[in-house]
């Protein structure tokens, strides 16, 4: 059996680090694992996705739409944009704070105003949380928003706790390991 995880957000939000932590956790737990990242032009403020697959043997690194077991979005409309990847019965963890795209600021498009309603309709199981606010209030550092989300997302995955804590230690600069471990734990209990 293969577990599929899709992360999405906007360039600069820390999606790729979150993907590396998940992959390391799966490797620590003894699984074969693959990841796929969108690079290049997407770095310039475009939408970014990362895919992680783990199991006994993983061939393709790409997730078939409709089969993601876990889904984390660091921005609400990016959650909607990739919602078709999620299995119907699985949980979506979505950060509630919008990042207004330039197409909206320049008047070419409109940011949807009924976000909560649309997300609820799209994702029957939804955790809709202001991770940015938690990161600032509890940890005084907005950069751990992705790690808090990862903690929340991890409750839907069957990887042991020490696989996660080792993964954080492997992927994060040593000065920030404790901060990220605390942020991860906080997210697990949301």
């Amino acid at each position: 059996m293969i577990t599929n995880i899709l992360l999405t957000g906007v360039g600069g939000q820390g999606i790729l680090l979150a993907a590396r932590i998940i992959a390391s956790a799966a490797q620590n737990a003894g699984f074969d694992v693959t990841t796929n990242e969108i690079h290049g032009m997407a770095q310039r403020g475009g939408s970014v996705t990362a895919q992680i697959r783990y199991g006994q043997e993983v061939l393709s690194p790409l997730i078939l739409e409709g089969t993601a077991d876990a889904f984390g979005a660091l921005e609400p409309i990016e959650a909607l944009r990739y919602s078709h990847y999620l299995k119907p019965e699985a949980t979506a963890v979505v950060a509630s704070r919008p990042i207004i795209p330039i197409t909206v600021s320049s008047g070419q498009a409109v940011y949807p105003d009924n976000l909560k309603e649309r997300l609820n309709k799209t994702f029957p199981k939804l955790k809709f949380i202001d991770f940015d606010a938690i990161a600032l209030e509890k940890f005084k550092n907005i950069k751990v928003a992705n790690t808090i989300l990862l903690g929340t997302l991890s409750t839907g995955l069957s990887l042991p706790g020490n696989a996660w804590s080792n993964a954080i230690a492997q992927c994060v600069k040593s000065a920030y390991v404790e901060l990220n471990e605390n942020a991860f734990e906080y997210g697990r209990n949301l």
């Binding site: 770095q43 310039r44 475009g46 739409e65 197409t103």
Partner: peptide, 30 residues
């Protein structure tokens, strides 16, 4: 997966994004 449906003459419904009307987020000058 779509090719598979064509090969075997099966019906296959492509999972679609929640909305086509979402504002785009193209790459831009920083």
């Amino acid at each position: 997966r779509e090719i598979r449906a064509k090969v075997y003459g099966e019906k296959f419904e492509m999972p679609l994004p929640a909305a086509e009307d979402l504002p785009g987020r193209p790459p831009i000058l920083c």
